[in-house]
């Protein structure tokens, strides 16, 4: 992939900033998301909460459904592929989706390697729990990072942990000298140039969203306050009692994340959020997939 392509893809991710990207499984949901103010939609076969319940292999969405979604909405359309499944990625690239999420929410296809994303023209977003994961994905060609959180749980605890971990690890680079930085780079399995850049700019060199467990407007505001550039909401919308209201409320919360009076207003009468799960009760931890 040429450097112009990388730039234009990294820049595209900046257009999502301060926005909400919503998981949808069909064109009807996509339309609801667009009307509620989503800045993009993410097409997938089943929302994470259902994937979690069914315990079956989760794969890229049906191409027909992705195409319908692309024809239905005018906002960008993203879609998920399994970790390491570059054939699924090739299919999505040929469809012309705007962004690919190489996602731990689907069943991994490769236990060792991620997709060499730099070989594609289409941009990729990947999940990360810590700085090492984020930087390894960026070196593979990801132009956008999101916390993994723990998708489908409606529990924000893991997303908070991952966002704070990345922020703390970046902060910790501040005091260290060049030699230690070289060690750090080799420990994390990333290039010295990349980690040097992170140290210099004091943030990831790509757009960084929060994902995995956002279920309420307050959850979305919390992640924005922690420094997220924007929010992915998966099951949180279409597993809530009133998806339209919840979708609008979450977008409003991202717009007004630093105004608690308005957040209080937004959080009123929005129907029950999705049922949340405690981490201890989970049979599978999706976030440990793909390091």
């Amino acid at each position: 992939m040429g450097s112009k392509r990388v730039k234009v893809n990294k820049d595209f991710a900046k257009m999502f900033k301060n926005g909400v990207i919503m998981d949808v499984t069909n064109s009807k949901e996509a339309k609801i998301a667009e009307k509620a103010g989503a800045c993009a939609v993410m097409a997938l076969e089943k929302v994470p909460a259902d994937i979690r319940k069914e315990g079956e292999v989760a794969r890229m969405s049906d191409v027909k459904i992705i195409k319908e979604i692309m024809q239905t909405v005018s906002i960008p359309v993203m879609a998920k592929v399994r970790i390491g499944h570059f054939a699924e990625a090739m299919i999505l690239e040929s469809l012309g989706v705007d962004f690919i999420d190489e996602s731990e929410v689907l069943t991994p296809a490769d236990e060792n390697d991620h997709i060499q994303k730099s070989e594609f023209s289409v941009p990729f977003v990947c999940g990360a729990r810590n700085l090492g994961e984020a930087l390894r994905r960026i070196e593979e060609g990801a132009v956008m990072i999101r916390t993994k959180g723990e998708a489908g749980t409606g529990n924000i605890v893991e997303a908070v942990k991952h966002m704070k971990t990345i922020n703390r690890e970046i902060k910790m680079l501040e005091g260290i000298d060049e030699n230690l930085l070289k060690n750090k780079a080799s420990n994390l399995g990333v290039s010295f140039e990349l980690i040097k850049k992170v140290k210099k700019i004091k943030r990831l060199p790509v757009v960084n969203f929060a994902a995995g467990g956002v279920a309420t407007p307050a959850d979305a505001a919390l992640m924005m306050l922690m420094g997220a550039d924007g929010i992915f909401v998966g099951s949180g919308i279409f597993k809530s009692k009133e998806p339209r209201k919840m979708a609008e409320a979450i977008v409003n919360a991202v717009i007004n994340y630093n105004n608690s009076d308005i957040l209080a207003e937004i959080s009123k009468d929005i129907g029950s959020p999705m049922t949340g799960l405690e981490m201890e009760s989970l049979a599978v931890n999706l976030s440990t997939r793909g390091e």
């Binding site: 730039k7 234009v8 257009m15 960008p76 012309g96 705007d98 289409v122 941009p123």
Partner: peptide, 30 residues
């Protein structure tokens, strides 16, 4: 979205000679 989807986004040389600006590279995204 007249140029297409993200795959059609690109960096192009723009002629802004009316403002005396030459060699300007514009980033076009969807």
């Amino acid at each position: 979205n007249a140029y297409g989807r993200q795959i059609n986004s690109s960096i192009k040389n723009i002629d802004i000679s009316k403002l005396g600006i030459s060699n300007y590279r514009g980033v076009f995204i969807r």
